[in-house]
Nucleic acid binder design. Structure first.
Lengths: 274, 274
DNA sequence: CGAATAGTGTCTTTAAGACAATATGCC
DNA sequence: GGCATATTGTCTTAAAGACACTATTCG
């Protein structure tokens, strides 16, 4: 990282000033600034509804230009006092009321193509966020907030809510032309990247399972995995799946009732998510 | 992504203006701006010297405050007309004279902890860059540019050049106290992240092999891998290693002379690096 | 030919996957 | 008991790893 402000700095460092003195001096200067971009975060937020056995992703309908009436990922500006990760946690709280920790989120990728926002220079760092509940505060008046059911068939992702359908090819990173709904900005790319990341990492760092909250059964984990593999969960062999998963979880005692043999409960081993 | 500038925008979108009209109007406004950070890229650049059988990483000695006399990763400001990836390629060219492509680089992580730069708000997106030659233009007068030999023993990374030694624990992401040299900013974290990423991905996306240029032998690939595994390359079984590697490479005809049976040459299959 | 190095083949061990058998709780 | 569901165990198949053998070139 270089941050040479040419003349002024150079003159200064040639004196044998201390670091502290330098900073004090530096901040007192009103140095000519480089042009700087707006920096935002975009959240690819997931939740899982046990009753419906549905994996869901949050999108917001834009009521303002640009991309008026298109669907967009929730997000917002990064504040000078916070890291992008903290920004992601704050936005999630504001948007859904859910308080997450660093274990529930993962930095995805930073998108910075010039003109990705028609209004000007905006760089965004995207995050995966896994909520342990399908919670939602009322959308503000500028937006229409919806949890979309996700369904994968091969490389094709279908997002649906009520009568709305959005279809994406997550390898080509583009929408299928059929769907009348649009995605704003480069959010097709972000969403595609998100799914590819989750699919690629779930067998060695299954952070996606934090959608199941504190504890869960093997079968629930199978169901979550099946959503990203695009298969029925029963095609994932319980016995073999458990062998794999045991590397990442520990048994916790908790045995609720229900039909059939009660299942054991497991919790994720924190160290594997770091 | 939200970019609500409150009143002004709201008033406008309520009219039924087109998107193009909106942008024209928007740019004509001199809207109050949020505070924006400087955005930089930092490069973790690697090269491999066949003669010495040495993997190398580039560091620059800072001659100015802050972190005067510490070693830092090469990098620089992102321009409004370029993505961070393009910025990385440009900086690499400026710093070393080597012209890379997107296949040689990989976005690593975006670091944004407040106060990571004592001068103010600076966010950096870090990149891995694999040069196919140990090239270097003369360092400018503000810097002392050196290729450090890298050596791993377990989690301990040792960077050495001439009589200089820098030791890092790449799991704890901190320097060992012994070494008198310092690393600037949060570059210990960036470097640690870089090694962990390379190690984690080399068996399923061995982009690191682009340090070997257009074509290479199995043994050369073993040598490169061994540097990141912290072992002698002869402990990596040639036969088994080849079985793995064949998934990612194709044979090219080229057979130079030398002692021993001449080895076949291979080139990376581009699709695996995308 | 012998040393050096690369390539190929085989055997063993381990992990992955398919499938069957057993266990538990509710009705 | 019968059904539903979960757990456990076994057998088969495929991948990973260790190791031995063959091939090619140079001096």
């Amino acid at each position: 990282m270089q941050f040479e402000n040419a003349q002024a700095e150079k003159k200064y460092y040639e004196t044998e000033a201390s670091e502290a003195d330098f900073i004090k001096w530096y901040k007192s200067q009103d140095l000519p600034k480089y042009e700087t971009p707006s920096v935002t975060i975009d959240n690819v937020m997931f939740s899982y509804n046990r009753e419906e056995d549905q994996m869901k992703m949050l999108l917001i309908k834009r009521k303002a230009h640009p991309f008026k009436d298109s669907w967009a990922l929730p997000g917002g500006f990064v504040n000078p006092s916070e890291s992008t990760g903290e920004s992601c946690l704050r936005e999630t709280k504001e948007e859904t009321g859910v308080e997450l920790t660093e274990l529930n989120i993962e930095q995805l990728y930073t998108f910075s193509t010039p003109n990705r926002d028609p209004r000007g220079w905006v760089i965004t760092t995207s995050y995966l966020a896994f909520l342990n509940q399908e919670a939602l505060t009322a959308g503000d008046d500028a937006s229409d907030v919806k949890w979309f059911n996700i369904q994968l068939k091969g490389d094709q992702l279908c997002l649906s809510a009520d009568d709305i359908e959005i279809q994406v090819d997550i390898k080509k990173e583009e929408m299928l032309d059929e769907s009348p709904e649009r995605l704003a900005f480069d959010h097709v790319k972000i969403i595609s990247t998100a799914f590819n990341r989750i699919i690629g990492k779930m067998y060695y760092q299954p952070r996606v399972l934090t959608v199941l909250g504190e504890s869960f059964t093997i079968t629930e984990a199978r169901k979550v995995f099946s959503k990203f593999l695009g298969v029925d969960y029963r095609t994932i062999d319980h016995s073999n799946f458990k062998k794999d998963l045991l590397k990442f979880v520990k048994e916790v005692d908790e045995r609720p009732t229900g039909v059939g043999r009660p299942s054991k409960f497991y919790a994720l081993n924190i160290p594997y998510l770091k």
